[in-house]
């Protein structure tokens, strides 16, 4: 009897080829999905894009009755809510990451880290009902009247915080988004800060620097690319976030200078109107909004990933 059974070896080779092909096919499917998303969105959006041309992204009008659609109000809402979210979330996330990596007693490090990660696991719709039923009334009764009263005489702020306190609107949506993206940015920043070699920090302390001076002059410059990557990752999330915003934005296709006014975002417009859209042009316009969102978030997330990768490569060297 031969030690190696040729039939057995041949069979093994066939299995090997099948298994390898299966893993390759699964890996290629990932590319296919992204390609499929781009192609199918473009095809769905084509009727609207052909009908309205470039004016689709520059017009504010959104009128299902006369079949006239423009994406300016949703684009404005998406950008402004995300900017508010980033303005609030980035400093807070920076503080959390600092606390976790530099200050926190070792015993509390894990529980607090896990708590922050759990905040990231809470589904978007939960932030939505919490925002609508708990946060919005508080803002309406206490925060917004105060803002309106005190910003009244200040030139720019007066315009931003004007009008009746609705509770819901652009500002509230930005605030809820800030809470939602906070854990993502904080977790990325924490991981990035952890990559700073202890030797560098020790050298700083050795020169007599305070803890804050070491953080600001050693840790932050060393991990700058990763910090920006984490911020962009959070921005990508904020731009595409749907359900939470849908609850608290107020759904008005209008551009208002006041942040307290109701507005709309790309994703909330799709979530609200898609199943109720009658007519091909209406549906196609909503898909065109989806295509815009896809292009915007893809660019932001891809840039974020590229930055985080650059940092990773540098750390490996």
């Amino acid at each position: 009897m031969a030690i190696i059974d040729p039939g057995h070896a041949a069979k093994q080779l066939v299995y090997e080829r099948i298994f390898r092909a299966a893993t390759l096919a699964a890996a290629l499917l990932v590319l296919l999905i992204l390609g499929g998303v781009a192609v199918s969105l473009f095809r769905g959006a084509w009727p609207a894009l052909r009908h309205f041309g470039f004016a689709f992204v520059t017009r504010e009008i959104w009128n299902p009755v006369t079949d006239e659609f423009g994406a300016l109000a949703p684009i404005y809402g998406t950008v402004v809510t995300s900017l508010i979210a980033m303005a609030l979330a980035v400093p807070t996330a920076f503080g959390i990451a600092l606390f976790l990596t530099e200050i926190c007693p070792p015993l509390l490090k894990r529980p607090i880290g896990v708590a922050v990660e759990l905040l990231a696991a809470v589904p978007s719709i939960i932030f939505g009902i919490w925002g609508l039923f708990v946060l919005a009334p508080v803002l309406q009764r206490h925060v917004q009247p105060w803002l309106i009263h005190h910003a009244h005489h200040v030139p720019v702020l007066g315009q931003l915080f004007k009008g009746p306190p609705f509770g819901i609107g652009i500002f509230t949506a930005g605030l809820v988004l800030a809470i939602m993206v906070l854990p993502f940015i904080a977790a990325t920043m924490r991981d990035v800060f952890d990559t700073v070699p202890p030797m560098l920090k020790e050298s700083g302390y050795g020169l007599g620097a305070t803890r804050w001076e070491v953080i600001w002059n050693v840790v932050v410059p060393h991990s700058r690319v990763g910090v920006v990557g984490g911020i962009m990752l959070g921005l990508g999330r904020a731009l595409g976030e749907t359900m939470a915003v849908t609850f608290v934005i107020g759904n008005a296709h209008r551009i208002s200078t006041s942040l307290l006014a109701p507005g709309t975002t790309i994703s909330s417009a799709i979530a609200n109107e898609f199943t109720e859209a009658v007519g091909d042009l209406y549906t196609s316009s909503l898909i065109a909004l989806g295509l815009l969102l896809f292009l915007i978030t893809f660019t932001v997330i891809a840039a974020a990933q590229a930055m985080l990768r650059r940092l990773e490569r540098r750390t490996e060297q």
Partner: peptide
């Protein structure tokens, strides 16, 4: 990129 892509886009797809 897909990991952080907005889920509503996947719904439309």
């Amino acid at each position: 990129v897909l990991l952080s892509a907005p889920s509503i886009i996947i719904g439309l797809f």
